[in-house]
Computed example of a mutant assay.
Amino acid sequence: MKAVNVVKEQWVDMFREIGLSDEKMTEWHRVFERRNPEGHQEFLEWLNISGKEIVEIRAL
């Protein structure tokens, strides 16, 4: 079975479906960045987010 990437919008939709606000999504990124910065970078790349946006997200 071939792995298919999920795009950012799909991931955000799933977060919203379970009730996460923008603030909680930002908090989730902060925890991910603090606990596993390399994994966070790889995850954002996996979502096909542009390099510029990745820098902005990780700077939060």
Rank of each mutant, 00 (worst) to 15 (best):
E17K: 14
I57Q: 07
V4G: 05
G39E: 08
K52I: 01
N36P: 01
N36L: 01
D22M: 01
E45L: 15
K52D: 12
G51R: 05
K8D: 05
E27N: 13
W46V: 00
R58H: 04
L20I: 00
W46F: 11
H29K: 08
Q10K: 12
F43R: 13
N5L: 11
V7L: 10
A59C: 06
K2H: 09
H40L: 00
V4K: 15
L47H: 07
P37V: 02
E42M: 14
V12W: 03
S50E: 07
F43V: 01
R58V: 05
V31W: 02
M25A: 05
I18V: 12
R35Y: 07
L47Q: 07
R30I: 00
N36D: 15
E17A: 13
F43N: 11
M1A: 14
V12I: 15
Q41L: 14
R16A: 10
K24N: 09
R30W: 01
R35C: 07
A59Q: 12
G19S: 07
Q41W: 09
V12F: 08
E38W: 08
Q10L: 03
D22F: 00
N5I: 08
T26S: 13
W11V: 02
G39M: 08
T26Y: 06
N5K: 10
F43M: 13
E38D: 15
W28M: 14
E33M: 12
G19K: 06
N36C: 03
R35T: 05
K24L: 07
R34K: 15
F15E: 05
E42G: 13
K52P: 01
L44Y: 04
E42K: 15
R34N: 09
M25P: 02
I18F: 06
E53Y: 05
V6E: 06
E23Y: 09
E45K: 14
N5P: 05
E17W: 04
H40W: 05
K8E: 12
V55L: 13
Q41A: 09
G19Y: 03
M25I: 15
L44G: 01
E45W: 04
L47I: 03
G51V: 01
R34S: 10
S21N: 02
I18S: 05
K8S: 04
W11H: 14
L44A: 02
E27L: 09
V7S: 08
A3T: 09
N48V: 00
N5E: 04
G39L: 07
V31D: 06
L60I: 11
I49L: 12
E27R: 11
W11P: 01
V12T: 02
E17I: 00
E45H: 06
H40N: 14
R30S: 10
Q10T: 04
E33R: 13
L20N: 08
E45R: 14
R34V: 00
H29I: 00
P37K: 04
M25Q: 11
V31G: 11
F43K: 11
K24I: 00
G51D: 07
R30H: 11
E53H: 09
P37F: 07
I57H: 06
K24Q: 15
K52G: 08
V31Y: 04
G51W: 01
I54S: 04
E42S: 15
E23F: 11
L47R: 04
V4I: 09
K8M: 05
R34W: 05
N48M: 05
V12S: 01
M25S: 03
